[in-house]
Amino acid sequence: MKRLGTLILAVLIVSSLVVGLGFAKTPPKIGLILATGGLGDKSFNDQSFKGASDAAAKIAAQYGVTVDDVLDYVEPNDVSEYEGYQLQFADSGDYDIIVCIGFDQASALETVAPQYPDQKFVIVDMVVNQPNVASVVTNDWEEAFLVGVAAGYLTKTNIIGFEGGMEIPLIIGFMKGYTQGAQWVNPDVKVLVRYVGEWANPTLGAELAREMYNAGADYIYGAAGKSHLGVFTAAEENPNWYAFGTDVDQAATAPEHADVIVGSGLKRVDLAVESQIMRMANGTWKPGIYSYGIHTEFGFGTGIAIGQLDVNDYIRKSASEVKVPCELILKLVEAANGIKDGSIVIEH
C-alpha cells in the first residue's frame, strides 16, 4: 500500500512537472484591438496599451520571453474594421485572450463572440452579454465630476469650458459629470460646451478652446482625442488660461504643456486591462460585468491627478507645474468621499 502510494505520488510529481514544463514553453498570448484613433492620443488608447504591456511584461518575465512574443496589437482605422480584426484574432486560435478597447467595438463583438464560444474576450467601456466576454466599464462621470470640482473651485470668472470630440453618449457623460462637479462646489458657475466634430484635428480644437477662453472661460476640460491637444496650445497663449487633461495625467504625457495643465481626470483603464489579463494568466478569469470607479465594488478605476502628493487612491499627484491651494485638495477629498459613500449621486 505504502509503495503504491509512493508510486502514485511520484507519477503525480513527474506528470505535473512535465505539464509545468510544457506550459512554460508556450506563454499565453494576448491580442489587443485598440480603439479608432490609435496610439498617440496620450490618453485612452495609450493607457489601455500600457495596461496590456504591463501585463505582457509580467507574463514575459515569467516565461523568459520578450513582450513582443506575448502581445500582438492592432490600431483599426475605423469602426468598420473592428469585426474583421476580431474575427482574425479569434479565428487564428493563437490568442488566449482578446482585449477590445472602446465602446464602439460592442456591436461587432456581439456578432463575433458567439461564433467562437471558446475564445476569451474582454471589452472595455461597454457591456456585451455573452458567456465568453468580460465587460469592463468605468464610471467616467466620476473622473469628470472631480475635474469639475477643481475647475469650479479655481475659476475666477465663474465660466468654465468643456470641449468634446463629438456629441456621443460617452462624451455627454463626461460633460454631465463635469458640469455637476463644478456646480457642486460653485453653484454660480457657467459651463460652455463645444464639440469639435473631429477626433484628430487639434487646429480646430485650439480654435474652439480660444473661443471659449475669450468668452470668459479660464479653465477648459474635455474629451476630444487628439483634437484635445489643441486646448493646451491655446491655453499657452494667455497666463490666465488653464486646461485639464483627460483619462491620464497629461501634464506627464505632454510635458511641454505642464505649465497650463492644472490636472487631469484619471481613468485607470491600464489597471482594468492589466487585471483582466492577469486573471487570464492565473486561470481565474471569468466572464461578466466589471465596473471600475469610486462608487463600485472595486472602489478604484477613476480619480484625478492634481497637486504634488498622492493623497489617497483617487487624488493622485500630477506632473503639473501649476500650484493649487490646499483647500481645493480638501474639497476634492470631500467630493471623492461623497461619491464613494453615495451621498453625492452623479446623473449621467
Partner: peptide, 16 residues
C-alpha cells in the same frame, strides 16, 4: 444618430 437626434438607439452607448 446622436443622443439628441431622432434615430439614436438609446440601448447602446454609441451613435447608432
Amino acid at each position: 444618430v446622436a443622443p439628441r437626434g431622432p434615430l439614436h438607439d438609446a440601448k447602446y452607448w454609441a451613435n447608432q
